[in-house]
Design a protein around this nucleic acid. Structure first.
Lengths: 348, 348
DNA sequence: CATTAGCACTCTCCCTCCCCAAGTGCCATC
DNA sequence: GATGGCACTTGGGGAGGGAGAGTGCTAATG
């Protein structure tokens, strides 16, 4: 008898068959059913023996004594490793994905369509995120006075992202002051990263002792109000396909919690960041989400990061039931992730 | 016996009591229960007689012979008319709303928080929408070259909204060309409505016959690509609190459809536009949503428009179960609608 | 004459019981 | 080692049977 986790080829084959049967039927798999499905004419009794071994090895569970077997998290992990790399994108998916994403030029649109198409191909929830990135190169800023002490700052980066931020200043500035400040920044710092611009301005303000330099006063005021601070806006986090969960979560209370969590977009961003910000390029399959989020019992995350120069600038993922078509979904996520990566790098 | 719809004061009182009991309990109301609740010591038998009349008049239904009565859509309509104007905002709601909306300066943030707070106070789904409005006064445009034939247009309106749009041009333009065009527009048209600017540019292009005027060529190219066309972006439609529906829709299939519909933000925008773009200022309660959308059986819409100079620029609404605390919700919607109106008019 | 008490009747809900189908584990056999 | 046979376990589902809540109707009552 092999050690837990160490199983022979016969066991592998049967385990795979069990997982696939369970995924497609949703019901505990019995030895009889399996012997009918399996090509090699193994008898139910033989399969029962193997199954018993697989239970010992931690790959299967029984909901109750006289029920069939159900794959454990460990089994899914094994299964995913097994099939990784083997999959090929189906022509239908290929068509669906390219026709949906065709002609997207701006990132928000891409994110929106991506989350949508992910939910379609996976029967799960599609998530797509891009970081606003203060590491982006500055293209243009504009300040517009909206009322007493109230200024709208618009920052455009070379990557084509637009951040706007309404601010309340301590001192009122005229539109002329604002234009002067914007011109100064645009003329001097175009092409710098937003981060560096911020640091530089901080320094120049510091060194400027002349109280009466109008420009510096304006810059200081704007700086203090965080004109160049780009927090992650909810607008860059897209979550679609929550309706798909209704079919997969029996427990209404838990379904409710799940929907609530998915609605908190910042938490989704954290979740993806936590699991996807790794060295690897590849698609990552996270089984056992319930460790971090109990309401996600029986759900898995299949996601991939998108990088620019080694740094994670975006991510996309499917959150779906453990009982999901992994091959299909992994391939789709992988394919879209490549497009995403390409899009981001094009802009960088 | 009064005509259908014509009922006496005794009937009114009992009908109101039935509706309120049903709203809070969720179960068909029986004569016995009601006689205990009702202050006037009317006996169950009397109430039964009245109930029979109310059934004839179309205000009540019986799920089955030996069950209590349930209010019909007609009854809810009556009830809502009855209580309209009588409600006062509870201190808790007042506190919740102002603390949530306090300090919001930009419209997107306001929309987001509004949809959130609406879902909180109503145990329904909160929806908040603002039109991008090409009727807004232009503050500033900026064009930024993103690659061959690819340009990012950023339009800032005086109302503080920022629209960005990635475009693909037929002819490539240099950044210098783009800056020149932007400067031209900013210098000549600041303060005009975006609509008017578009029309004016169209005309100037038309009249300009010189093929070699670089500026006009650039403008023409940008115009053709729709640089000033602001379609309604999904980013300005906020829908929150879908988790609340789980408790209210028994039928899983219908729940699924409902979630799907709520996710299609454009349809939500149409729905609100259809029901709220009226002359009235007031909160509107729409009972019988299933006529337009069958998946919304047993749900109502409580919403209000926000106007600038008579034109609808935004709207907010709660979509919740017919069994809802109308008084509470109507008051909250009304209060927030006033804030919304104020915010929009401030910016205009 | 409106109101009420009484009463027989009708449903649904829920609990219990019981059988059936599917599955298991183990032992003897090929 | 694989298989066939067999006794045992267990959840699901249908039948049956109150219990409870509610109704409509009729007769009595102020």
């Amino acid at each position: 008898m092999p050690n837990p986790g160490q199983i022979g080829p016969r066991e592998r084959e049967i385990l795979t068959a069990i997982i696939e049967t369970y995924i497609s039927s949703g019901e505990p798999v019995g030895s009889r059913t399996l012997s009918r499905v399996n090509k090699d004419g193994l008898s139910p009794a033989t399969i029962r023996n193997v199954m018993a071994d697989l239970v010992d090895a931690g790959f299967l569970e029984q909901p109750h004594t006289s029920a069939g077997r159900v794959p454990t998290a460990q089994a899914y992990r094994y299964y995913v490793d097994q099939i990784s790399g083997k999959a090929v994108l189906s022509p239908e998916d290929q068509t669906l994905i390219s026709s949906t994403l065709q002609g997207t030029v701006d990132i928000q649109q891409f994110l929106e369509r991506t989350s949508h198409v992910l939910s379609l191909v996976s029967s799960g929830v599609g998530v797509a995120i891009a970081k606003t990135g203060v590491q982006n190169a500055l293209e243009h800023v504009h300040f517009s006075r909206q009322g007493p002490n109230k200024v709208l700052a618009v920052v455009v980066t070379k990557s084509g992202m637009v951040h706007d931020r309404m601010m309340r200043l301590e001192r009122d500035l005229s539109q002329t002051d604002l234009d002067t400040a914007a011109n100064y920044i645009n003329a001097n710092f175009r092409g710098w990263t937003v981060d560096k611009v911020k640091a530089e301005i901080a320094q120049r303000i510091e060194h400027e002792r002349t109280q009466y330099d109008q420009l510096m006063q304006s810059l200081k005021e704007l700086y203090k109000s965080g004109a160049l601070t780009a927090e992650q806006p909810a607008a860059n986090i897209f979550v679609e396909g929550v309706a798909n969960l209704v079919a997969n979560e029996e427990d209404r209370e838990r379904l409710r919690d799940l929907l609530k969590t998915l609605e908190e977009k910042e938490r989704m961003a954290e979740l993806l960041a936590a699991y996807l910000d790794t060295r690897e390029e590849a698609v990552r399959v996270v089984i056992g989400l319930e460790e971090a989020m109990p309401q996600m019992r029986n759900f898995v995350l299949i996601g991939a990061p998108a990088r620019v120069g080694g740094e994670m600038r975006g991510s996309l993922a499917v959150i779906g039931p453990t009982r999901m078509d992994y091959q299909h979904t992994i391939t789709a996520v992988s394919y879209i992730a490549q497009l995403f990566d390409k899009l981001l790098n094009e802009h960088a």
